[in-house]
Design a protein around this nucleic acid. Structure first.
Length: 692
DNA sequence: TATCAACCCTTTTTT
DNA sequence: AGGGTTGATA
C-alpha cells in the first residue's frame, strides 16, 4: 500500500496503531480512505501478530458496512474477509445470538420493530389505565428509548417526574420491558444495552471479546449514543486500541440519543487520546465549500476548524424558486436530463430532501422522462398492510409468543375469529398467567367461548403448527407460497382493495415479499430460516434492487433524505424543499439546539456535492392535500452572494409570490449586485431554467 | 361477526 | 391524499 498518497495528518491517522485515537475529519476530508487504509495497514504490519479477525470496524449503516468491506477486499485481497465490518446494532445482535440466554432471553429471540414496540406500549398503557388515544405512544417510546440509552433500568423512579409523559413512561417502561421479554423479543436499544450487560456481568465473555477484538474502529462517531459508547468502552478493554472518526459539524442524530459529547469528551473516556484533524477537503469545488462553510459558521460551540480545498472555482450554486412542488420536481428532472446528456453518469447524481414524502413528485417526474432512479430508505414497502400481514405470519410461525403479530393475523383473511373471541381468550390468558397462544390451545374448556368460535381458533392453531413444521425443512419461499395459497391470502387482499389497480398493487407486493425471500435463501443457503430472515429484515432496511433494464444502462439517480446521504458524495446534487418549516423543519425551531441540528443537516446536504449543487424551493407546496404557501429557508440567506446564481422559474398561473418572497429575492439581488456579478454558469454546464 | 361510510390525523429524520 | 379507526347496520 502506498502511504505517500496520503497527506501528513491522514498518514498519521493511518499509522498510529496503538492507543486511543480520535480523528476529527471534516466533510470530504478522506475519512473513509483513512479508515480503509488504516485497516489495510494493520493487516500489513500485523502488530503483536494481529490478524484480520482481531479487527472490528463499526459503521453507521449496513450500506456503509458493505461498501467498506468491498473496498477492503479490493485493496487487501481475500485476507480482508476476516475483518468484521458491521453496525453497532448488527454486532450486538450477533453477540446476543450466542449468549443472550445468560440474561434470561430465549436463544431464538426476535427483534421487535417499531410497530411491535408501539403495540406493546399501547397495551401497557391500557393495562395502567392510561388512555392510549389521549397520549401518544410514540412519545412514550421515545422516552423509554432515551431511558434505555442513558442506562436507566426499567424500575419506576418516583423522583424526577415532570409532566404526564414522564409519569406514564415510568409506569409503562417496566411493563413494556417485561412484555418484550415474555414474548422473547428485544428492541433496537436492547441490541446495545444487553450486550453491554453481558460484558459487564460475565468476566468470561468480557475476556473472550476483548481478546478477539484487539483493534476497534468507529466511523461517524459524532452520531453514537451513550449505550454505544458504553459498549465500545467495554469492548476496548485494557488495550484501548480504539480509533474513532467523526465530525461534530455533521452530528444529525441527537433525536435518536446521539451525544456529540462522545466526540468532544473523547479524551476523558480514553485518557491519552491522540487527536488528528483532517481539514483538507478533496471532494467539493471552492464555491460549494464556501457556501457550506458560511452556513455552518453560524453555529456556536463547534470545534474550531477550517475546511479548505485546492479545487478553486466551480459552477455557482443554483438557488431556484419554483412555483410549486410539482414544478420543482419537473425542473429537477429536466436539469438531470441535461446533465446526463453532458456526460454526468446517473449514478453520480443525487436528489436530497428533508422528509421522505418529498420523493413522490420527483419520482413521477423522473419516470415521465424515463430516467432511472433508486429511492434509498423510506420503508414504504414494508409499511404496506398486506406486506405487514405476511411478515406477521412469519413472526407467529417463528415465535408463537409474539402476541402482537398473532392478533394481527388471526383473522386475516377473515376466518370468523373476531375481536370478541380474542378478547375473551386474552382474559383467560391473563387469568392463568399464560401466553395468548397457550390460552388458544386450552380454549376447549372455556365456557364463555361458543363451540364454533373455539373450533375455528383451534383449526387456525393447527394450521400454523403444521406450517411451523413445514418451514423447518427449509424451502421458505415455496412453503410460504403454499401457505398463502391455502388461506386464500392474495384473493382476500385483492377483494379488500378499493380499486382494481390497487388490488393488483397489493398482489404485486405480496409477490415481492416472495422474491425477497427467494433472494435471501439464495444468499444464505441452507442456514436460511424464518428467524434469520426476520432478523435481517429488521436490521437492514435496504430494499432489494430490481433488475429492470433501464434506458441508460443500469445507472440510476439516487433519491434519499439528507440523513441517509451522510458519508456519500455525488458530482451533482439537488437539495430540494429549501423552505421554512421544511428545512429547517417545523417544530425544530423552538429549541436553539434543534435549530443548530437543522443547520448541520443543511451543511451535510450541501457538502455531498462535488461539482454542481442546486438548492430548490417551491412557493406553494401540497401538504396533507392542501396548498400551502412557503417562504424561503433562512439558510439560503447565509449563502455568500458570490457563490449563488438566482433562478426564478416563471410565476405560476395561480398564486402570486408572497411579500416575504419578494423581499427575499430583492434583498439577495442587492447583495449580489454589491459584490459584483461573476457572469453566468460555468462553462460546460447546462443553462438555467427553460420551459419544457 | 362483517361491512360500509364518516371521520380522523398525519409528518421528521433511522438502527 | 391516503390509510386507519369508529360507529351504525346487516
Amino acid at each position: 500500500m502506498d502511504l505517500s498518497k496520503l497527506n501528513p495528518p491522514q498518514r498519521e491517522a493511518v499509522t498510529t496503531l496503538e492507543g486511543p485515537l480520535l480523528v476529527l475529519a471534516g466533510a470530504g476530508s478522506g475519512k473513509t480512505r483513512v479508515i480503509t487504509h488504516r485497516i489495510v495497514h494493520l493487516l500489513n504490519e500485523r502488530p503483536f501478530g494481529a490478524s484480520a479477525r482481531n479487527i472490528l470496524a463499526v459503521t453507521f449503516t449496513n450500506k456503509a458496512a458493505t461498501e467498506m468491506k468491498e473496498r477492503l477486499v479490493k485493496m487487501a485481497g481475500p485476507r480482508a474477509q476476516g475483518v468484521l465490518v458491521c453496525t453497532f446494532h448488527a454486532f450486538g445482535a450477533e453477540m446476543l445470538r450466542e449468549d443472550v440466554h445468560r440474561l434470561g432471553w430465549p436463544k431464538k429471540f426476535a427483534i421487535a420493530d417499531m410497530g411491535d414496540q408501539l403495540s406493546l406500549i399501547r397495551r401497557a398503557m391500557r393495562d395502567h389505565k392510561v388512555d392510549d388515544r389521549a397520549f401518544d405512544a410514540r412519545k412514550v417510546l421515545t422516552l423509554i428509548s432515551k431511558a434505555k440509552n442513558s442506562g436507566q433500568p426499567p424500575s419506576p423512579k418516583p423522583e424526577g417526574i415532570g409532566d404526564d409523559y414522564d409519569l406514564i413512561t415510568h409506569l409503562v417502561y417496566p411493563s413494556y420491558q417485561l412484555a418484550l421479554k415474555a414474548q422473547g423479543s428485544v428492541d433496537f436499544d436492547d441490541l446495545l444495552v444487553l450486550p453491554a450487560r453481558l460484558l459487564r456481568e460475565h468476566e468470561d465473555l468480557k475476556a473472550k471479546y476483548t481478546r478477539r477484538f484487539r483493534y476497534l474502529l468507529v466511523d461517524e462517531f459524532q452520531d453514537t449514543n451513550l449505550a454505544q459508547m458504553d459498549l465500545l468502552r467495554l469492548l476496548t478493554g485494557e488495550s484501548m486500541n480504539v480509533c474513532a472518526v467523526g465530525d461534530d459539524d455533521q452530528a444529525i442524530y441527537s433525536w435518536r440519543g446521539a451525544e456529540v459529547k462522545n466526540i468532544l469528551q473523547f479524551d476523558t473516556y480514553f485518557p491519552g487520546t491522540k487527536e488528528v484533524r483532517l481539514e483538507q477537503n478533496y471532494r467539493s469545488m471552492q464555491v460549494v465549500l464556501d457556501a457550506a462553510n458560511a452556513v455552518i459558521a453560524k453555529n456556536p460551540e463547534r470545534k474550531p476548524k477550517r475546511m479548505w480545498t485546492d479545487r478553486a472555482g466551480g459552477a455557482r450554486i443554483r438557488v431556484v424558486k419554483c412555483p410549486n412542488d410539482e414544478e420543482e420536481a419537473r425542473y429537477v428532472a429536466r436539469e438531470i436530463e441535461k446533465h446526463i446528456a453532458h456526460g454526468i453518469p446517473a449514478d453520480d447524481i443525487a436528489v436530497l430532501y428533508r422528509t421522505n414524502g418529498q420523493a413522490r413528485p420527483v419520482e413521477e417526474a423522473l419516470r415521465e422522462k424515463g430516467i432511472g432512479y433508486e429511492v434509498v430508505g423510506g420503508s414504504e414497502f414494508f409499511d404496506r398492510s398486506e406486506v405487514k400481514d405476511v411478515i406477521a405470519y412469519f413472526k407467529v410461525i417463528a415465535n408463537p409468543k409474539d402476541e402482537v403479530s398473532l392478533l394481527r393475523i388471526v383473522n386475516v383473511p377473515a376466518r370468523g375469529i373476531g375481536d370478541v373471541t380474542m378478547e375473551r381468550l386474552h382474559t383467560h390468558a391473563r387469568g392463568q398467567g399464560v401466553s395468548l397462544w397457550e390460552a388458544m390451545e386450552r380454549s376447549e374448556g372455556y365456557e364463555d367461548l361458543p363451540t364454533g368460535a373455539g373450533a375455528k381458533v383451534r383449526e387456525f392453531l393447527r394450521m400454523i403448527e403444521r406450517y411451523r413444521g413445514l418451514f423447518e425443512g427449509g424451502n421458505l419461499a415455496h412453503v410460504t407460497r403454499n401457505l398463502l395459497e391455502e388461506i386464500g391470502f392474495k384473493e382476500a387482499a385483492r377483494a379488500k382493495a378499493v380499486s382494481v389497480s390497487s388490488g393488483d398493487k397489493k398482489v404485486k407486493s405480496v409477490e415481492q415479499v416472495l422474491t425477497s425471500l427467494e433472494n435471501f435463501e439464495k444468499r444464505e443457503g441452507p442456514k436460511a430460516s424464518l428467524l434469520t430472515y426476520l432478523n435481517r429484515l429488521s436490521l437492514d432496511t435496504r430494499q432489494e434492487e430490481d433488475e429492470d433494464e433501464l434506458p441508460g444502462g443500469n445507472r440510476r439517480v439516487t433519491l434519499m433524505t439528507v440523513h441517509s446521504s451522510k458519508g456519500l458524495e455525488y458530482r451533482l446534487v439537488f437539495f430540494i424543499g429549501m423552505e421554512e418549516d421544511l428545512m429547517p423543519h417545523k417544530g425544530m425551531q423552538g429549541e436553539p439546539q434543534n435549530l443548530e441540528e437543522e443547520r448541520r443537516l443543511c451543511y451535510v446536504g450541501i457538502t455531498r456535492a462535488k461539482e454542481h449543487l442546486y438548492l430548490t424551493r417551491a412557493a406553494i407546496r401540497v401538504k396533507r392535500g392542501k396548498d400551502v404557501p412557503c417562504t424561503p429557508s433562512r439558510f439560503l440567506e447565509d449563502l455568500p452572494p458570490e457563490t449563488v446564481e438566482l433562478i426564478d422559474l416563471e410565476a405560476p398561473r395561480t398564486g402570486a409570490p408572497t411579500v416575504e418572497e419578494k423581499n427575499f429575492f430583492a434583498n439577495l439581488k442587492e447583495r449580489f449586485k454589491a459584490k459584483g456579478p461573476g457572469g453566468g454558469p460555468a462553462p460546460g454546464t447546462p443553462g438555467g431554467p427553460r420551459g419544457s
